[in-house]
């Protein structure tokens, strides 16, 4: 499969990466080169093969329903949560106004 400039532009938009037309144009052959290469996977006979879900046989252990049992995965650390925020105000994260 291959991509054209419009498709690459659409992907960039979907990925939320602003991209000038020149950059989009430059990516078209690059991506096509890579896609042409990965296309060889299509020749593998995968009849009856399940896609891999867990690379090592391992059973998922669930967490107990306990609040703040481990501070690393618990709440009540607002200062930490907001410490690196570019625009925190009144205990909130600020973002440009959204119209829903």
């Amino acid at each position: 499969m291959s991509v054209d400039q419009a498709t690459v532009g659409k992907i960039a938009k979907l990925a939320r990466i602003a991209m000038p037309d020149d950059d989009v144009a430059a990516l078209v052959p690059e991506l096509n080169n890579i896609l042409a290469w990965v296309d060889q996977l299509a020749e593998v006979d995968v009849t009856g093969v399940e896609p891999m879900t867990a690379v090592i046989p391992n059973r998922m252990v669930l967490r107990a329903d306990v609040v703040d049992a481990d501070p690393l995965t618990g709440g009540n650390r607002r200062d930490d949560i907001l410490a690196n925020a570019p625009a925190a105000q009144h205990g909130f994260f600020g973002v440009p106004k959204v119209i829903e």
Binding site: R77, R78, H90, G91, F92
Partner: peptide, 8 residues
């Protein structure tokens, strides 16, 4: 309170 019940 906002963002108090938020973990990493």
């Amino acid at each position: 309170e906002p963002n108090t019940q938020v973990s990493l």
